[in-house]
Design a protein around this nucleic acid. Structure first.
Length: 334
RNA sequence: AGGGGUAUAGCUCAGUUGGUUAGAGCAGCGGAUUCCAAAUCCGCAGGUCCCGGGUUCGAGUCCCCGUGCCCCUGCCA
């Protein structure tokens, strides 16, 4: 049986902070639902987690990387279909980064908006923070990735990866596949429960417990965070005019139940927000329960997780080695 | 490299001539209130006072060494 090769997609997730409902509904769940549509490489990018050295907790980083991988499996990523591996386990990422560094003009990095916003106000900025987009380019180019599903905030980084690939190809001959950004699969954009005007964020959630619902939260905590979520003094469920917090709650409910926003809106018209919150809390708890169950089992008997990671790593390493051989040959090293 | 300034709670900062248990505002957490939230009120928690030495009965405070950051002046095959 032969089939046309699937488009290869690369997705990275940082092992910083705990995964939350926004990560789940916005990214993981849609990935699971569409994992047969293309060849997916899911990479826990622990090297990217080093870019803010003040935040590195060496004794926790390994565990966090494994936790993220376990969460992916628990959410339904099928390791026989998709690859799931940890970035630092494939050494070629760092080697390619150095080569690409030498090809990347400094100005390209200095004008990255994420670098500017992340370095703003910080006392010291490590070189790694500036170099972050090059590491990301290496991640993508190493596997001849054709598409990279990212949100608006990461689009500039994909463009940099393209620019670097084109520049290298131009200087040293056709070596890299030039990747395309792709709209992430129709994921919900979940806003912070305590501040519904900003996207739910792992870093904010670390200092504000009720900012997010985490994948490993207890039902009591889930309920509390949702009940405490910010709304307004009125009673408006019209998606066009309702306050951000109410709209966010309706989106979350829609994402887990599949019910359309207009239907939810009309069901609750005339009722207090408390009732909506209760339903959201119950729906989220029910949605997460089986995932949490599997997640705990995976971490309890770590053998399976390690085996999955080892198999995926071996598989993707073949791709990485092939690319690096081309790169070394093109540029004259190795 | 030299000179100066600075380092205290998650953030912004107080902290007297060296003196009891290092404080405030904001943020956070819990409670009251509210259909829920907000506002308000009550309460709670949070610190290696940058690291290491020294002086002293006693050091956040004084001295020395180191480190990070900011400013100035230089050096640079």
């Amino acid at each position: 049986m032969t089939s046309t090769p699937l488009v290869r997609a690369f997705s990275g997730v940082q092992p910083t902070g705990r995964l939350h409902l926004g990560n789940y509904l916005g990214a993981i769940k849609p990935w699971v639902e569409h994992q047969h549509a293309r060849e997916n490489l899911f990479c826990v990018v622990d090297l990217h987690a080093l870019t803010v050295p003040e935040a590195i907790k060496p004794d926790e980083l390994k565990a966090r990387s494994r936790n993220v991988a376990a969460a992916f499996l628990a959410a339904g990523i099928d390791p026989s279909v998709s690859s799931l591996f940890i970035q630092s386990h494939v050494r070629e990422h760092t080697e390619l980064t150095w080569v690409l560094n030498c090809v990347t003009p400094l100005g390209w990095l200095e004008r990255m908006t994420q670098f500017k916003s992340k370095s703003e106000g910080r006392e010291t900025v490590g070189t790694g923070l500036l170099d972050y987009p090059v590491l990301m380019a290496a991640d993508i180019l190493l596997y001849d990735s054709q598409v990279v599903p990212v949100g608006e905030d990461q689009k500039q980084h994909i463009e940099l990866a393209r620019d670097v690939a084109v520049r290298f190809n131009h200087m040293f001959g056709e070596t890299f596949v030039v990747p395309q950004p792709s709209i992430p699969l129709s994921g919900a954009r979940v806003m912070g429960f305590d501040e519904p005007t900003v996207k739910m964020s792992k870093s904010i959630a670390e200092s504000r417990p009720h900012h997010a619902v985490h994948l490993d939260d207890t039902p009591e905590k889930i309920r509390k965070s949702i009940m405490k979520s910010v709304t307004d003094a009125g009673c408006d469920y019209d998606p066009a005019t309702a306050s951000p917090g109410v709209v966010n709650l309706m989106h979350v409910l829609s994402a887990v139940s599949g019910e359309g926003i207009p239907s939810i809106s009309s069901r609750y018209t005339g009722k207090g927000y408390g009732y909506l919150k209760q339903e959201v809390a119950e729906a989220v708890t029910a949605e997460l329960a089986p995932v949490q169950d599997k997640y705990r089992r995976l971490l309890d008997e770590a053998g399976y997780l390690d085996q999955v990671l080892a198999q995926s790593t071996a598989k993707v390493r073949t791709l990485a080695e092939a690319t690096m051989t081309r790169v070394r040959h093109a540029i004259g090293i190795g």
